[in-house]
Design a protein around this nucleic acid. Structure first.
Lengths: 146, 146
DNA sequence: TATTTTTAGTTTCAAATGAAACTATTTTAT
DNA sequence: ATAAAATAGTTTCATTTGAAACTAAAAATA
């Protein structure tokens, strides 16, 4: 058994390499982290979400989301509003500044992904998506057994 | 643009989920970390390697490898030997205990991977390997430009 | 209605991380 | 041969992390 043939290892190396590449770039250019980027992207897609909702969609844990919301608010990229249904929660949305930022970063992210995928054919991309999807469900299945 | 259609995000979520699943399991059962597991697997495949060599093969940074070597040595899973060619380096190999450990863990890792892949066809697995390989080269290409 | 349990989010604390500085040695260049 | 640059590996230090404990509010149950 060779480590570099081991799928979990391969995925980890690839994912870390990609994330590190993106993170470094966005940190340098805009001083935002991957967590911040994720939350901004989600709020850009749909506003007025609670931390709980963002936790689920971002797949980050609640501590990390809580800290991300705090930092984004301090930097004036998001604003909050009381949640009438549930006094524990708040609804967040992008400020004008947050919106401007994400609209500057987003095209870069899309361009990065495009460059990444240009090495694959359309069929390969489709098939890759299927595989990732299938693997995701499978991990869930396996880990809930353990 | 939706976050969950974004390949870097998808890969990160999948990889973290898999790594967390494995890490949790091996931590519980054997009290070893992913870093430790990687080094043990590499030394099991080929002994008498230096930290530098392991750094390259494990794709971890030298600080992390250094700490991993220290912890593995403290727990008596590896031993070191002076390196005659280069007095700064040492060559590491598994002890009897380290060998026993990795031979217990390895089948579990292989079984985990097998379960993971049983959701994919042989052709899909092949194609997935090709994609990962291609993406890897592509990231290298992209990031060295930035 | 009162009590218990669950949930949203924050804080605390200890561990993991990695960049940068460091030591010791080796390699390269002059 | 000597000085300068590069390399192997470690340590330091500041940051990031996430589990566990916590607060406050909501939902479920008695």
């Amino acid at each position: 058994m060779e480590l570099n043939k081991f799928l979990p290892y391969q995925l980890s190396v690839l994912s870390n390499k990609i994330s590190a590449g993106i993170a470094k770039y966005y940190r340098q250019q805009y001083n935002i982290s991957v967590s911040q980027w994720r939350v901004l992207a989600l709020l850009s897609d749909k506003g007025n979400q609670t931390a709980k909702e963002l936790t689920i969609k971002s797949q980050m844990d609640k501590v990390r989301v809580s800290r991300t919301m705090k930092s984004l608010e301090e930097r004036n990229f998001i604003s909050q509003q009381a949640c009438q249904k549930d006094k524990r929660a708040r609804r967040y949305k992008l400020t004008k500044e947050g919106d401007a930022l994400i609209n500057e970063v987003k095209p870069k992210a899309i361009a990065f992904e495009k460059r990444l995928l240009e090495t694959l054919s359309t069929i390969q991309i489709d098939e890759l998506q299927n595989c990732l999807q299938a693997l995701n469900s499978q991990v869930d299945k396996i880990t809930e057994e353990i």
